[in-house]
């Protein structure tokens, strides 16, 4: 199964729609609840990051025989220091975003904790690609 989602960077009220839709599809496929939960959490964090930091982008989610791969692509400012961004508690989110309950600096650490593999390709001024993999 292959699904493509456009992630709107302007509308916070629909943040999580891609993750919710993909979670429903995984349930229909009969994927184990533990795998679904891990994918849903990691995917939501990446979706929120794409909106907050990337200004929107795209998501491609694929279920193959042995794994689930979800790739988020944005054309935002990129990540200057990946090691810093991976630290729990570090965030560059604005005060406005923090008031909504985001910006705890848990996004990338959560993705890492809940996936079997995570890859980040980023270039300052060009954008970021985050790929998360959960084995079946």
């Amino acid at each position: 199964m292959l699904k493509h989602y456009n992630i709107d960077g302007q509308d916070f009220s629909i943040a999580g729609e891609a993750s919710s839709d993909f979670k429903r599809r995984l349930k229909k496929l009969g994927i184990s609840p533990d795998v679904i939960r891990r994918v849903a959490i990691a995917m939501y964090e990446a979706e929120i990051n794409t909106i907050i930091h990337g200004g929107g982008g795209e998501c491609d989610a694929e279920v193959s025989n042995d794994k689930i791969t979800v790739t988020f692509t944005d054309h935002g400012p990129g990540i200057k220091d990946i090691d810093l961004a991976m630290q729990e508690g570090y965030s560059t989110a604005t005060e406005q975003i923090r008031e909504l309950g985001f910006g705890a600096g848990m996004g990338l650490p959560n993705i890492k904790n809940y996936t079997d593999d995570m890859e980040i390709e980023t270039e300052v001024g060009k954008g970021t690609v985050v790929r998360l993999i959960v084995k079946l």
Binding site: F12, S13, A15, G16, E17, S19, S20, P33, R37, I41, Y44, E45, I48, L100, G101, F102, A104, G105, M106, G107, P109, N110, N113, Y114
Partner: peptide, 27 residues
């Protein structure tokens, strides 16, 4: 903090919060 809740709360938990924006539904 939504990401904190997302990463730490467990399946079938009661989630108690004062956060009341639209994003709590997705979380």
């Amino acid at each position: 903090l939504l990401s904190w809740v997302m990463g730490r709360a467990e399946e079938d938990n009661v989630w108690i919060t004062v956060m009341s924006n639209i994003n709590i539904v997705a979380v």
